[in-house]
């Protein structure tokens, strides 16, 4: 928004409405390339959390470099959505959360386009204030604008906290991903 510390170099022309964040300890906006260094540690924290659930989710040594590349790529890609969550008050201008989603084609099914939430992470002190809900509402708005008819979320099946979050908000399990080592 107007107080954004980084000029929106790659703005998609969308900004989350400030009115929706009234009363919440955060401020949501579309991320910019200048945000990447602050977003990478949040993505890495999320991936380390995933590592807790299964040895097949062991985080690679080059994860930091990969996160930087993927975020940089997605920030330039109209088929991707990356939102940055900023704190307010003493934490104003500090990035405390991220949501990253991508639009995917569904060649066999209708609706034919889906938005899939790939990364969603909030620093611990910002949780439990309804921020997650707000993040989800914003991502839904943008996904609809981009023509998605379905919103999906990818997370480890054993993450019961995530499962409960989505279950409470109208999501249901559809496709599972089963893995084995080769």
């Amino acid at each position: 928004m107007s107080h954004s510390p980084h000029p929106p170099k790659e703005s998609k022309g969308h900004e989350a409405g400030p009115s929706a964040s009234a009363g919440l300890p955060v401020h949501l906006r579309v991320a910019t390339l200048g945000d990447v260094p602050a977003l990478v540690p949040l993505v890495l924290r999320l991936k380390s959390l995933n590592e807790e659930f299964d040895p097949l989710l062991k985080v690679r040594k080059d994860a930091e470099k990969t996160a930087t590349e993927i975020l940089t790529r997605d920030l330039k890609d109209p088929e991707a959505i990356v939102l940055a969550t900023e704190g307010v008050g003493a934490d104003k201008d500090r990035i405390v959360g991220i949501v990253r989603a991508r639009i995917r084609e569904r060649p066999f099914y209708a609706p034919e386009r889906e938005a899939v939430i790939l990364d969603i992470y909030l620093l611990p002190l910002y949780r439990r204030h309804g921020v997650g809900e707000y993040l989800l509402e914003e991502i839904m708005k943008i996904a609809k604008e981009k023509g998605a008819g379905v919103l999906t979320a990818e997370f480890p099946l054993q993450n019961h906290i995530a499962a409960s979050f989505y279950n409470k908000r109208g999501f249901r399990p559809t496709i599972g991903l089963y893995s084995r080592t080769l």
């Binding site: 999320l46 959390l49 611990p124």
Partner: peptide, 8 residues
């Protein structure tokens, strides 16, 4: 670093 793990 381990706070997310503690949440579980």
């Amino acid at each position: 670093d381990d706070v997310d793990s503690l949440s579980l």
